[in-house]
Simulated assay, not measured.
Amino acid sequence: MSETNTTHFTNPSTFILQGIPGLEPFYVWIAIPFCTMYTIAILGNLAILFIVKTERSLHGPMYYFLCMLAVTDLIMYTSTLPKMLSIFWFNAREIDFSACLTQMFFIHSVSGMESGILVAMAYDRYVAICDPLRYSTTFRIIVLAPIALAVVLRGAILSLPYPFLTRQWPYCRTNIILQPFCMHMAVVSLACADISISSYYGLFMLFCVMGLDVIFIAISYMQILRAIFSLPTKDTRLKTFGTCSSHLCAILTFYIPGLFSSLTYRFGQDVPLHIRVLIGNLNLLVPPMLNPVIYGVMTKQIRERLLRLFTHKGP
């Protein structure tokens, strides 16, 4: 694209995704681990969905929430990785303005949905351990459906302002996004206007939405740990805690990199740009890859079903 197209214009029809600035000579090699992550995430999450669907003993609330998590992970990878790989392999950096906004919406809405699913799973574990006699009545299908709908609607509705706020700003300096995908702050930072509203809304989502989710999960696990430590024997305590271990790992892989990435992008201006971009990439792409691995390895029922699947034994 010519210099005039990237320096003197108003409201561009396309943006240029830079990829990972400073690491252009290594794109072919960088694409290999990203492609491997893509393959693991797609196959792993599809395997989770297949196992839960075909194994009747897994038709329960925890596994339905796990299926929701797998679907959101698949959407996250589908909305980001193909474009990233096209940048790394084919130098296809242009993205239509509307496509950029669409990708932005899916990235942020799916992240919000995944956070909501982790909260729902924490509540599931809380009821199962702290009030097991009410578990079957609390998590019936007619209750699960509204919870699932609320999680999806919350993520979608709270993410709608991102593309609307982004579209309203004038862009008159450059259309080069120093990222391999369209994140909200990466795009609006190119605007030649006061973007305080966009910045404040992003912080609201980070602290008031994700933060409240973390607080709710923390409260749930404080009650869970109290119930576990009140159990009579060590073996019983370990077995009960084992039912939460995979969920705890999923929580850590989702929230810790996400918080670190958001704070680094806003306040870590002394951190080299390519490091910040790589951290942002890993924040989005590592949890969807690790979730099926975590649940496949740490959940006994899924692990046994996977072993039967790959050894060609009957169910």
Score class of each variant (00 low, 15 high):
D235M: 13
L225V: 11
I30P: 00
I251L: 11
Y77H: 14
P288H: 01
V110A: 08
V119D: 01
T102D: 08
D270T: 14
P288A: 01
P61F: 02
A70Y: 08
I294D: 00
L309H: 05
G112L: 13
L43V: 15
G202M: 06
T36F: 12
T78N: 07
L46D: 04
V127T: 01
I107K: 02
N283C: 15
P33W: 06
I176L: 13
F9C: 04
I20L: 10
Q269D: 14
L290F: 08
V71E: 04
F260W: 14
I228W: 01
F229I: 13
G202I: 04
L17H: 03
T264E: 05
A41D: 04
N281M: 12
G155A: 09
V151W: 03
F90M: 15
F15Q: 01
S245G: 09
I51T: 01
I215E: 07
Y63E: 06
V71Q: 04
L273P: 02
H274T: 09
I42N: 03
T236G: 09
G280K: 08
L285C: 06
I219F: 13
T166N: 13
L259M: 13
A156Q: 08
G211W: 04
I48T: 00
L206Q: 13
M289Y: 05
I141H: 12
M84S: 05
K239Q: 12
F105R: 03
I228F: 04
L203M: 10
I224H: 07
I87Y: 02
D194G: 08
P257T: 12
V151K: 02
K234I: 14
C208H: 15
Q103S: 09
T174A: 11
I302C: 00
Y221K: 10
I32L: 11
Y171L: 04
D96M: 09
R305V: 03
F9H: 01
R125P: 00
V143F: 09
Q269P: 00
I215S: 10
